[in-house]
Simulated scan of single mutants.
Amino acid sequence: MARPVIGIIGNRGLINNRYPVHEGGQMNSCAVAHVADCIPMLIPADPDYMSIGELLDVCDGFLLTGGRPNVHPSEYGEEESPIYGTFDRARDAITLPLVRACVERGQPFLGICRGFQEVNVAMGGSLHPEIRELPGRMNHRMPPDGTMEEVFALRHKVTLTPGGQFARLFGADEVMTNTLHGQGIHRPGARVVIEGTAPDGTPEAIYVKDAPGFTMAVQWHPEWNADSDPVSRPLFTAFGDAARAWVARKCPSARVA
């Protein structure tokens, strides 16, 4: 039988500033294929093209990727304003109900950056529009210049709950991560457990309590250097194992190659 299929939630983009495309970072596909050992499938996140039920049937798990547009503040009871940046309402309409459906079914997902924020909002939480403007917080945004290695360089520690899911997975209570985000969790959603924080207190690692499946999400970008990074590799490996377990539950007679 084929490897599990991971739906990679894509973003909208423009080629030459005029040709609209659905796009996804190659790093995401590489991490899914080579580390999680699953088949990557880019999903155009727009309800005009598919339903949540169809996605759940076609895919065995989902990678909720990062993206420049932010979750619309109306999804957590706030008014739209320029401080919240740009939006992708079509992606909101796919990812938020998709997260809730996966939590209910036990279907695995891994949230990254915007995906991390989507998990929190889907579960009823809210977001700060700009972390760096809060007293005592550091600038978590992407460096404006530099090589890819410099942009994705490890920039701060994340302290993990001792004995928690992430600490057990990484085999450590403290890890080093990159940081490329402007927004962050304000109020945790229902059942959202924060197990990792940056030195300034910004939430960095969460999961959904009592969910029957894999619901881990991180604010950093583990897709960078995922095949060799000591934090990224176990995260994607565990995600792939969860997708294989889902296939085994869904089709008990099936054998994943």
Rank of each mutant, 00 (worst) to 15 (best):
I6V: 15
N16R: 06
N16M: 03
G24S: 07
G24A: 06
G25H: 09
A36T: 02
D37N: 11
P40C: 08
M41E: 11
P44D: 03
S51D: 13
I52T: 05
I52D: 00
G53W: 02
G66Y: 01
G66C: 11
P69S: 08
P69R: 02
N70G: 09
S74M: 05
E75I: 03
E78W: 06
I83E: 01
Y84A: 05
Y84M: 02
Y84K: 05
D88H: 13
I94T: 00
T95L: 12
P97N: 04
L98V: 13
R100E: 14
R105G: 03
P108V: 02
G111T: 06
G115I: 10
E118A: 09
V119H: 02
N120M: 05
A122E: 10
S126C: 07
H128N: 13
R132V: 03
P135H: 06
R137C: 08
R137L: 08
H140L: 14
M142N: 09
P143M: 07
E150M: 05
E150I: 02
L154H: 05
R155S: 08
T159A: 15
F166W: 04
A167D: 10
L169Q: 03
A172F: 04
G182M: 04
A190T: 15
V193C: 13
D200G: 12
D200L: 12
G201F: 06
T202F: 11
T202H: 11
P203Y: 03
I206L: 01
V208I: 13
P212L: 09
M216A: 13
V218Y: 10
D227G: 09
R233V: 00
P234I: 05
G240C: 09
A243Q: 06
W246S: 02
C251R: 13
A254R: 08
V256T: 02
